[in-house]
């Protein structure tokens, strides 16, 4: 069996002894498109396995946030007063600035990716480091604002306003936190020169995830803070 190409036992069992790819015959009623005379060589996939898998994971994440956002919108659209009487407004100016910080981290992540594509190791490390730092600043500012809000009396138990705010923004925060940790792991690996211009799947995947958490933020910011 080893080395058997076309003369595999399979063919023998069926009673057909074919050593070569057989000639093509007129179309049968069963299948309109003709079998190709010789099989097309296996093509390089359009999107690599790793990136396709990551895209799928992000689709899952998007639907997860979709569920939470759906819940938020149900309450938001039905509300006459939002925030409900007696509940605080969400911090505006600080969050605008914080949004800027997070969005710029998206840019530095792109920079890091472009750097490693050119084989620029220090550019990669710088990019990753700055991205992680910006992410951490974003989290710290968010945390600070949360403390202020809780002091003001807005908690998970303050009706749907508090429930949706902390759940949605909290879930996003946890994702950013996870992404920062991942960035640090990648940073550590890049400090050991794990990545090359040709092979840097780890950076790519992390970049995709980072783009997702950054890209999700304006949606949340717009709906939860501004709307």
């Amino acid at each position: 069996m080893a080395g058997g190409t076309v003369a595999d036992p399979v063919l023998d069992e069926s009673g057909l002894h074919l050593t070569e790819v057989p000639p093509v015959v007129p179309p049968s009623p069963h299948e309109a498109d003709l079998p190709p005379p010789s099989p097309p060589p296996r093509k390089e996939p359009f999107v690599s396995n790793a990136r396709l898998g990551m895209l799928m994971f992000l689709a899952f994440e998007a639907m997860f946030f979709g569920g939470l956002l759906g819940a938020f919108l149900v309450f938001r659209l039905a509300a006459v007063h939002w925030p409900p009487p007696g509940q605080p407004y969400l911090p505006g100016v600080v969050t605008w600035i914080n949004t800027g910080i997070l969005l710029s981290s998206g840019v530095t992540m792109r920079r890091a990716l472009r750097a490693i594509r050119d084989g620029n190791q220090s550019g990669l490390m710088n990019g990753l480091g700055v991205t992680a730092l910006l992410g951490a600043i974003f989290l710290a500012v968010q945390g600070g604002e949360w403390v202020r809000l809780v002091r003001y009396g807005l908690t998970l138990t303050s009706g749907t306003y508090g429930s949706t705010f902390y759940t949605l923004i909290g879930c996003h925060g946890v994702h950013v936190l996870g992404a920062v940790v991942w960035l640090l792991v990648i940073l550590l690996q890049s400090a050991r020169y794990r990545f090359t211009a040709r092979d840097h799947v780890g950076v790519q995947l992390c970049g995709m995830y980072w783009t997702f958490v950054v890209g999700l933020w304006p949606v949340l910011f717009g709906l939860v803070y501004l709307y």
Binding site: G67, L156, T157, S163
Partner: peptide, 22 residues
Amino acid sequence: ALPVLTSALAMLLFDRMLGTSF
């Protein structure tokens, strides 16, 4: 579809355990 259930389950758990009111 499952992530939507996951989000609903999370909200139900929060209602039960953390005092939210989804």
